[in-house]
Simulated scan of single mutants.
Amino acid sequence: MDRHDTNGTLEEALERLHSSGPERLGRLTNHAPMVVEALAARGQAGAVHRWLDRYRHKLEDFPSPVAPVTDADWPQALGDPRRAADWIAYFTRALSDRPWREVLATWWPRLLPGMYGGSTHPVIRVGHAVRALEREENEPRLTELAHGLGYWAARHRPVSGIAPLPGAPSAAASLDAVVPLPDPRGGFPDRLAALRHLPRWADEVTDPGTARERLAELVRAATHRYASHGHGEPTMLVHAATAPNAVLRTLDSLPRALWVPSLHAAWTATAAVTAMYAPAAPVAYAPPARLTAGEVLERALAHGDEHVIKFTDTALDAGDERALAAAQRAVELSEPLG
């Protein structure tokens, strides 16, 4: 049994959630599976069902199927959000027939170019599911991976037509070099379609070990940056850190040959989110108190917002004082869960 969750609470929560769809209102993501995994992983299993009770008004029923996805016709169903139930059923079958790491290795390179759909939430959900499975493999956790991969396939959306701009040696400096959208309008899909330029960064990397190091650097830089730039859009800018961290968490479950393309896709996601939601100017930020990691997590849980909890989870992975300050900033900027 998972040492972080010794009473099966995560399994109970996932089973409770798998009758719900991956979205609500046709476009907003169901964050509950990701949050309950984060809470269980951080030793807060006792708070899982209380948090779910607060969030349940945001859940919708599981969508209706359209037609089965098959090995022969899956390319035609890729990126069709109406097929979410079909894709989840497809991955449920695949994971019952083959080891989960084998399924993940097959589908990761197919899905990775479209990690920008669903505001990057699908890859984040997969990252949480993989972390749970690395701790313990059981049916609810495998089902959660099927839901995450199915959501990703249904919301698969590549980006194209983006010209490279000069970057900088470090991730932080290259994020500073990102040019904000000149006229940001609409939601994530509209802004993503309007992107025309992003700076290069780490495109010379070919070694898997180096790719892992640079990806960790990117997560740290994006987490730190939130403290001074998060006011641009407090909810959406957390994804600049949580999306690459989901990729980083998945690397050890993937063949090393997939690590370099994973780094490049993660950089595009982080740079794109930065460009789409950049504030007019940064602010100097110092947290009101120096808190321990446990205290920061307690504040995020009391606040309750799903993005705050997930961003805090990523900040705890980074683990340094600047990352914890960024998590406190997220608490300050975001609306608490009602």
Rank of each mutant, 00 (worst) to 15 (best):
P182W: 09
E295G: 13
H156Q: 10
L192Q: 06
R24Q: 09
V159H: 12
R54H: 05
A243Y: 02
R225M: 09
A173G: 01
R225L: 13
G117S: 12
D305R: 09
E37G: 15
T70F: 11
A278D: 09
P208R: 06
D320I: 14
A32W: 03
T312Y: 01
P261M: 11
G8I: 07
M34S: 12
R131Q: 13
A271F: 08
R191T: 05
A67T: 14
T223I: 11
A202Q: 08
D317K: 02
L78T: 02
V283P: 00
D61H: 12
R322M: 05
A67R: 15
P189H: 09
E136D: 12
S334Q: 11
L104N: 03
R196V: 12
E102D: 15
H197R: 15
M276K: 06
P68N: 09
V179N: 05
I124R: 00
V273P: 03
L198R: 09
R93P: 00
R101P: 10
T143E: 12
T242Q: 09
L316W: 05
R16W: 08
L39M: 13
A271W: 01
L195H: 04
G338S: 11
L297N: 07
T270P: 04
L251M: 06
A284W: 07
A13M: 06
P65E: 06
A40M: 12
T210P: 00
V331P: 06
R56Y: 03
A216T: 06
H197T: 12
W259P: 01
H307L: 10
T106Y: 08
N138I: 01
H264W: 11
A171M: 08
W267H: 08
A193V: 08
H128V: 00
D203T: 15
A171W: 01
L337D: 02
D53V: 01
S160I: 00
Y116L: 14
R191E: 10
